[in-house]
């Protein structure tokens, strides 16, 4: 009787352990192969998937926060002012050298309150979002393989797999992920996957009034994005981490992190 109880316990204990290695082993494979053809490719001739990327012209951003509002509307991001898939930071370098960084709130119309104007040496806005890294630290740390790179290079979260452990949120060097309060899973920018796979622009790019954001296929030979890459000196955020971001910045001040 005692022995049988022990065996039952042992079985219950071992089953998941035996199950796990299978899953992990496969999760390590390159997603491009595992993923196969993306759903939208059905209508198109099978070929090399596009490689999505975004360019941000810092010197054009006017901090109007239209992108933040549009993103929330398009992607069911909660209204609360601390959940964002994309956001805009206001950098102010004061005449005494101090750096003040502030995230804009949506729809308040008057971004500047923080620093009196005569103390400002230089000030500008920097739009931010998930960098869709080619070497994403968030994907590496996920214990259940719920986050992966799509064939287009977009880092996605499987909300049915995600267990809400927040490792990825900690691991992201850009602070681009948050825990969605309704689904209790990690949520992040998808480059508006549901739009871009249908040749629409991401919502934030769509509404940007000054074309500060450019979206496109990084491998395309003739596109605004390619032109941008050729004509501008390109920066990425935290290049020393070797995350290989696919969000490219121009006219980026050295103080931006």
């Amino acid at each position: 009787m005692q022995r049988r109880g022990f065996l039952a316990g042992l079985a219950a204990f071992l089953a998941p352990i035996l199950g796990l290695p299978f899953r992990r082993a496969r999760a390590d494979g390159p997603p491009e192969q595992a993923g196969g053809a993306p759903p939208h490719a059905a209508g198109k001739p099978a070929g090399k998937p596009r490689r999505f990327g975004m360019a941000i012209q810092v010197d054009r951003c006017i901090g109007c926060t239209r992108c933040m509002d549009a993103c929330k509307a398009e992607n069911n991001v909660p209204k609360e002012p601390f959940f964002f898939r994309t956001w805009v930071e206001q950098y102010t370098i004061k005449t005494d050298g101090e750096l003040v960084v502030r995230s804009l709130k949506t729809g308040n119309g008057k971004p500047s309150e923080s620093v009196p104007e005569r103390e400002i040496m230089r000030s500008f806005f920097v739009p931010k979002l998930c960098n869709q890294c080619d070497h994403p630290p968030c994907v590496q740390v996920c214990p259940v393989g719920a986050t992966f790179r799509s064939p287009e290079g977009v880092v996605l979260v499987d909300e049915e797999r995600c267990i809400g452990c927040r490792y990825c949120i900690q691991a992201c060097p850009y602070g681009a992920r948050y825990l969605h309060p309704d689904t209790k899973t990690a949520d992040k920018c998808t480059f508006c996957y549901h739009r871009t796979t249908r040749d629409l622009l991401p919502a934030c790019v769509e509404v940007c009034p000054t074309s500060a954001r450019i979206f496109g296929d990084l491998d395309n030979v003739a596109s605004p994005l390619t032109r941008f890459k050729r004509m501008k000196k390109i920066h990425t955020l935290k290049p020393d981490l070797n995350t290989e971001p696919k969000v490219l910045y121009s006219d980026l001040d050295g103080v931006v992190r």
Binding site: G36, P39, A73, G145
Partner: peptide, 22 residues
């Protein structure tokens, strides 16, 4: 994994689009 990647891609690709585009 193949299935779960595929189903996620499908789910993401079919989310409702609210902005109609230019």
């Amino acid at each position: 994994r193949e299935y779960h990647v595929k189903s996620t891609l499908e789910r993401e690709a079919n989310r409702p689009r609210r902005f109609a585009g230019a």
